[in-house]
Design a protein around this nucleic acid. Structure first.
Lengths: 196, 196
DNA sequence: CCAATTTTATAGCGATCGATAGAAAAGGTG
DNA sequence: CACCTTTTCTATCGATCGCTATAAAATTGG
């Protein structure tokens, strides 16, 4: 059953437009990105944007979801692929500097700084939950390693998970400040040494 | 020579008003704090604010300077008081969780997140320089310790200084996300372990 | 061709942004 | 008292914010 596709067809590629929106939000954050900025960057009128994505907040929420899959997913992949928590941490610290300083992409991380300077408690809460869920995921992996005897029993899984995500936050922020890939590589290597 | 004090006297305490502005900028950042927010919180009219502090950007710049002395100075003090770089790092990591979660004060750090969501390149550059200067100060202290043989010669002073400030940034951001003082204490303790 | 449906472009909505003009108010100085 | 200076209050200013009403344009179905 093919969809009817009645009415005037959309004149732009929705996925391509969403990707442009992601990069704009990534670069400037939710609040500093105006609807006018979006319509100019996406090359469409405001009514088209609202028709295709709802309102600004819905567009941002969708941008977050796709960003997390497309650009920020290296953390989830490391946790899924690596057999041990420390292996996942090592891989994340090894990949993060490159991820946060890619050419032709904004520096830093949308999930870390996307809610910067926003008053909307919904946006702030949404991103806080996303950040906390990464801490939870790391803590769970650490807990499993403790149970399996691969990590000492006296360490706190949540604290170590929080440290790891917190160090990544620091890396992302440093990248936004223009710190070079090479320096971030060194910083990430130091950060891993805190692990038991 | 006493100042003339001609004209109608100011009806508010300038220092007290500046402190209120500091806390407002600290809580919401430069962009999310409107002039209307400021006039309401400070209890003065807009013309009084502009007369006493210039414009919004000048008020923010002055707020940054006083904040750095009054609330953020524990880093500079640790670097000045402690004899070794690692001692300074240990003290900074020991104090930061309490500093970033004080009652009756905003969480986190104004210098870390004050430019969040701002488009003004002047504001962003100003804060980036403040953050970088702390990295420089730490790196200088580390370099001195290497010269004195208190730290191994194969470490990179700038990278270790960047790591330390980057970890502090992560702590400040976590505090903004509502992480408890107790958890931040644990995270800070882990962060120190990365030091040689 | 003619409806029906959906998207497009144009224009503008009320609200808020940072900042200021103009006059009244409050002090010192003679 | 009058005069000078500075701050205060009131009332905006033009620009921009997120968002939308309206109607023309572009397609499918009959």
């Amino acid at each position: 059953m093919v969809t009817a596709a009645r009415g005037r067809p959309r004149s732009f590629d929705r996925d391509a437009a969403l990707d442009k929106a992601i990069r704009l939000f990534w670069r400037r954050g939710y609040e500093a990105t105006s609807v006018r900025d979006l319509t100019e960057e996406l090359g469409i009128g405001a009514p088209s944007l609202y028709s295709a994505f709802g309102d600004k907040q819905q567009l941002f929420t969708e941008a977050l979801r796709v960003y997390d899959e497309k650009y920020g997913g290296f953390i989830d992949r490391a946790l899924a692929d690596e057999p041990t928590a420390k292996g996942a941490a090592a891989r994340v610290f090894a990949e993060a500097p490159e991820r946060y300083t890619r050419r032709d992409l904004p520096t830093g991380c949308l999930i870390v700084s996307g809610d910067a300077g926003t008053t909307s408690t919904e946006i702030i809460e949404h991103l806080r939950r996303m950040r906390d869920s990464k801490v939870d995921a790391f803590a769970a992996k650490i807990r499993a390693d403790i149970t399996a005897g691969r990590l000492p029993a006296d360490i706190d899984p949540r604290a170590l998970g929080r440290y790891t995500m917190s160090a990544l936050t620091g890396l992302a922020q440093a990248a936004r400040d223009g710190v070079t890939r090479a320096e971030l590589d060194q910083v990430a290597e130091i950060a891993l040494r805190a692990w038991p």
